[in-house]
Design a protein around this nucleic acid. Structure first.
Lengths: 124, 124, 124, 124
DNA sequence: GTGGTCTAGACCACG
DNA sequence: GTGGTCTAGACCACC
């Protein structure tokens, strides 16, 4: 379900946070679906349970999952989360357009790129 | 000419690389314009000359400046460099569009954002 | 594993880069094999850790090794790397032939030299 | 007659040595042909006469030119020089072939490259 | 004076 | 423990 990339410079727990976020946002893990336990996921990935714990904690802080003592961790709803992510991406998008403008990339060139990506269906 | 941000998490030498790159790409420092010497810039910024040296070295490796022993460091030409930067930005742009698509941001929303930024002239 | 030549005019870190490159390209260090840590290699060679750090950093930039904070540095894959090196050597080869031509060295003389080296098996 | 490259990392006097050597070896300056005076060449290149002086001194030491007090500097014979250069190039050639062999470049590939360069007449 | 290399010793984030 | 960043101070080659 989750594959770690040891060449990735980011810490392992960040990779796990990202992967779980994606699984939930993509709908693979619907609301209230149980996540693997800290210990089992640690075993499966052959890493220290502390690392999983740290990732789950941060995921809970962000409202992406919720944990119940003695029962396990579960996927939370994504309605608010999606809006957050959208805003974040739009902000990065806006920054990148400014950079493009400074480099004299034309509006049309950017528009074409959008058309290209959306037509190819490269956004699933 | 250059202001460091000590709140910035990135290393100082990266900030310097970025600032100098921008000055040259923006044409503030034309081709063959002399850069401040390693020592003088270190004094001005109140940091260690090694840090400047590291930044200049990386800038030279990237072809943004060139250094001559005993003479100083100078801005390099930007003709090829600009193309490189443009390609890099377009690649990042493409990646970001894919992310936006996954989050169900519509083509029109992205187009509008581009119009907005270009009309406001936020790209100088 | 690595021997420094203090008579060599090149900086130490370049020698280290070269030696490590050769070890990896020759297959002595297979993909994902751990390299000695920055500190241990510095101890072994009786030089400053910074010098090793600089070499490893450049090796990573070139894609010859990869480093993971808190874990260590490891040999990267060499598939693409070999092609790069081949192209570089062929380019230098071409330049050298031109020089030879200018000095009125005959085609045959060069051909003979190639035969000689390849027969003696001086290319392992 | 001589153009300096300020982007070149080597000291100016080395560039001058190389350029003058080439002019003489190529036969542009035949034996006993007068070289520009130290002062005039310095003026022409807009550099310090000391730098020219240093270059001419080294050229005389190598037997490539000879100087006569009060008369000027002149091109020397090139018979021995050519042999020296040829030997040097052949040595570098041999080293490069070994490198090529280690990278699994075939004998045929090298031979083809020689044919290519010599046919194109890229060695004048 | 300039850039380039190296050492010694420190602190940080990560696992 | 690991790699990554930074400082302080030194020496070299070149101009």
């Amino acid at each position: 379900m989750i594959v770690l990339d040891y060449q990735d410079k980011r810490p392992l727990y960040e990779q796990i946070i990202e992967k779980v976020s994606e699984l939930i946002l993509a709908g693979v893990l619907p609301e209230h679906a149980p996540l693997p336990s800290v210990r089992s996921l640690a075993m499966e990935l052959s890493i220290n349970p502390n690392t999983i714990q740290r990732a789950y904690q941060e995921l809970e802080r962000r409202g992406i999952i919720y944990s119940v003592k003695g029962k396990g961790s579960f996927a939370a709803g994504i309605h608010d989360l999606k809006k957050q992510k959208q805003e974040e991406v739009l902000k990065r998008f806006s920054e990148l357009i400014k950079e493009a403008g400074k480099l004299e990339i034309s509006k049309e060139q950017l528009m074409d790129e959008i058309e290209r990506v959306y037509e190819r269906g490269e956004c699933t």
